[in-house]
């Protein structure tokens, strides 16, 4: 991370609501939660029992990571909101996850492509965050990066299997790539908030992550015998709260009980 220590705010507790980390941590939390939620929809419906368990493990990892972020975000905000308030009582326009993770599961190939694109970014981001200046964020990243490394291995291997499997699996994969690759660009295109945090040295420069991400993607696609997709128009918006239609339905389901019975303990 290209930060100089002197630029880092050292006393976040002094002005909690103004802490620039709060919206970032919330964005990381939303991202992991929404993807975990999508993956959990597979539970009981996987293509084979062993992979049902694998998908649930990944969902559980991401859910755990999301909870760590939400708890930290709640503390940073200092307004007495809890992890559940943040997850269950914010509307779609307040959610800050990138568009990619809210896309529906589709068939197994769609789930794999979505996961691969996310894991490739997530792993490389966490690798940098774990040596970042904010101790709490670094600690969460240090725990999560091990999980993300496994996720990336899993999704990479499946992408290879589907690409270099049967003509039928290749067809499924090609379709998934055509549908989802356009959401990859948003992950590494900084928003105004992210640019600000990068200037403060709290977030790695995404441009610096790209070489490793691209090298890994090129390697995996080559193994899968899939030509590198031409860079499609990169859809943007989720990280600024402008979502696809899918998120509303997802949140309606996720938040149903908390919204129906406000203020109760479960």
């Amino acid at each position: 991370m290209a930060a100089t220590q002197s630029e880092i705010p050292t006393a976040p507790a002094a002005a909690p609501a103004a802490n620039p980390l709060f919206p970032l941590v919330l964005q990381l939390a939303d991202t992991s939660l929404i993807l975990a939620h999508r993956l959990s929809e597979w539970c009981g419906h996987g293509p084979v029992l062993e992979q049902d368990l694998a998908l649930a493990n990944i969902a559980l990892d991401l859910l755990g990571e999301a909870r760590s972020y939400y708890q930290y975000a709640a503390e940073l905000e200092g307004q007495g909101r809890t992890e559940d308030d943040l997850a269950y009582l914010r509307s779609a326009v307040e959610y800050r996850n990138p568009l990619l993770v809210e896309q529906p599961n589709g068939d197994f190939a769609h789930t794999i492509v979505r996961q691969f694109l996310f894991d490739n970014f997530h792993y490389h981001l966490l690798k940098e965050l774990q040596s970042g200046p904010d101790a709490r964020l670094a600690a969460i990243a240090e725990k999560s990066v091990k999980e993300a490394a496994y996720h990336l291995k899993w999704s990479s291997e499946w992408l290879i299997r589907l690409g270099d499997g049967t003509p039928e699996s290749r067809q499924h994969l090609d379709k998934a790539i055509a549908t989802l690759w356009r959401f990859a660009g948003e992950l590494t295109t900084p928003t105004a908030l992210e640019t600000n945090l990068q200037e403060l040295g709290l977030l790695p420069e995404y441009a610096a992550l790209l070489p490793a991400m691209q090298a890994h993607a090129a390697h995996v696609l080559a193994e899968a015998t899939v030509p590198l997709p031409a860079a499609p128009f990169a859809q943007q918006g989720g990280k600024s709260g402008r979502h696809s239609e899918h998120l509303g339905y997802l949140l309606a389901e996720l938040q149903y009980l908390q919204r129906t019975y406000p203020g109760l303990t479960w």
């Binding site: 939660l33 939620h37 929809e41 539970c43 992890e83 269950y88």
Partner: peptide, 30 residues
């Protein structure tokens, strides 16, 4: 048996309950 509980994973009322329920239904797969 994964199905009747599985359909509440996405509607669990807290993040803690969601984790527990997902882990439980996953155990059933195991």
């Amino acid at each position: 048996g994964m199905l009747p509980e599985g359909n509440w994973i996405t509607r669990a009322p807290s993040l803690k309950r969601k984790s527990i329920l997902l882990a439980k239904v996953q155990d059933e797969a195991g």
